[in-house]
Simulated scan of single mutants.
Amino acid sequence: MPQELRAVAWTGTGLALLDQTLLPHRAETVHVRDVDTLVDAIRRLVVRGAPAIGAAGGYGVALALLQGRREGWTDERTRAAVARIRAARPTAVNLMVCVDRVMTRFEEGPDAVLAEAAAVQREDVEANRAMGAHGADWLLKRIGEDRPLRILTHCNTGALATAGWGTALGVVRELHARGRLERVYADETRPLLQGSRLTAWELAQEGIPHSVQADGAAAGTILRGAVDAAVVGADRIAANGDTANKVGTVGVALACADAGIPFLVAAPTTTVDPGTATGDDIPIELRDEREVLEWAGVRTAPAGSRGHNPAFDVTPGRLVTGLVTERGVLEVAAGELPGERLR
């Protein structure tokens, strides 16, 4: 992604969010100086991706403090505003973790809060770089063929979804930098097309060969031998390795298991939630049914039809060949459980 474009940036008085609802056709910035606007931006997916909304949430604590000082809020009201930011999207644990971390500096005032939020953002970029290298090393060793690899990915996990570089797409970028990437199959990712709008845009910026495909094509692409591995991100990982990611991910994992190829999850350790025992305990966000009943504001389903629109699904840990974090790779399906190894 061009260096000047960042998903989340602090301007000195508020947040600048690259509006991901408008990409790839327009690159515009939403300027945020109040809590209501930030909560709306997170819910509308102006900013999205677990690490990116975590960074936005961290800065949101400072935003709430500054707004509270301008408008004469009590501490109680300011804390309530922070709680609204923390709850804006219930599945992605990074938002909660980052808000909670920054809130440890709340009593010290805005400067201390901003310093902690900046540290969260900086550490995410560092973690992404490390997991990109670990993931590329593991894939090349695991697949063991001296040729460029063909990788399938689902949803968007690049610089747009993080503080910079990317998680799963960071692994892809590392393979590309090493000259070991032949092609990326990017699932379009229904219903909001984060794959075709965002992942393809990032890949095009990097000059990485890629093909966009319908989500329903993924299993067939894998089973006919056109893919060497799938690499995806995560919004929450339970202690037993069950992984919540964008809806449609579990079908990719099942196809990889049947084809006998690696299914790699790339996520920072902040995405691992040891307090969530299994995927059954992960709350799944249900979004507005209009996202699947309409297209561009035009009704596509019959008037009497109802929509079922879960934003995420849960892939059982037994299907996760590897979980790559900034610390290395855990082979979850072989019994290396993140709740035990990453405490």
Score class of each variant (00 low, 15 high):
4 E>R: 14
5 L>N: 12
6 R>M: 13
6 R>Q: 15
7 A>H: 10
14 G>R: 10
17 L>W: 06
17 L>G: 02
18 L>W: 10
18 L>N: 12
25 H>T: 15
25 H>A: 15
29 T>V: 15
31 H>I: 00
33 R>L: 02
36 D>T: 14
40 D>R: 15
40 D>I: 01
41 A>V: 07
41 A>K: 08
43 R>M: 07
46 V>I: 15
53 I>Q: 09
56 A>N: 04
63 L>K: 07
64 A>C: 07
65 L>M: 05
67 Q>Y: 11
69 R>I: 03
72 G>S: 10
74 T>E: 14
76 E>M: 10
78 T>M: 14
78 T>I: 13
79 R>Y: 03
80 A>F: 04
83 A>G: 13
86 R>P: 11
98 C>W: 09
101 R>M: 04
102 V>Y: 04
110 P>K: 07
111 D>G: 11
114 L>Y: 00
114 L>T: 01
119 A>Y: 06
120 V>H: 01
120 V>T: 08
125 V>Q: 07
128 N>I: 12
129 R>T: 13
129 R>Y: 12
130 A>H: 01
132 G>N: 02
132 G>K: 00
136 A>P: 08
137 D>V: 04
138 W>P: 03
140 L>T: 06
141 K>C: 00
145 E>N: 08
147 R>C: 05
148 P>A: 14
149 L>D: 02
154 H>F: 13
155 C>H: 05
156 N>C: 10
156 N>D: 08
158 G>T: 06
159 A>E: 00
160 L>S: 08
164 G>P: 05
166 G>S: 04
167 T>A: 10
169 L>S: 03
169 L>I: 09
174 E>M: 00
175 L>G: 07
177 A>N: 12
179 G>R: 01
180 R>N: 04
184 V>F: 05
193 L>Q: 03
194 Q>Y: 09
194 Q>V: 09
200 A>K: 08
202 E>M: 06
210 H>C: 03
211 S>G: 03
212 V>H: 04
213 Q>H: 14
214 A>D: 09
217 A>H: 13
218 A>I: 02
220 G>S: 14
222 I>S: 03
225 G>W: 11
228 D>W: 02
229 A>H: 01
232 V>C: 11
232 V>R: 08
237 I>V: 15
239 A>D: 08
241 G>E: 09
241 G>M: 11
244 A>E: 05
248 G>N: 06
248 G>Y: 06
253 A>M: 08
254 L>E: 06
255 A>Y: 02
256 C>G: 01
256 C>K: 00
257 A>W: 10
262 P>C: 04
262 P>Q: 08
267 A>H: 04
268 P>D: 13
268 P>V: 10
268 P>N: 07
273 D>H: 01
275 G>F: 05
278 T>N: 08
279 G>F: 04
280 D>V: 01
281 D>I: 00
282 I>E: 09
285 E>H: 11
286 L>I: 14
290 R>S: 10
295 W>S: 10
305 S>D: 14
306 R>L: 15
310 P>T: 08
312 F>R: 11
319 L>H: 14
322 G>K: 05
328 G>E: 02
329 V>S: 00
330 L>Q: 02
331 E>L: 07
332 V>L: 08
335 G>N: 12
340 E>P: 03
342 L>W: 09
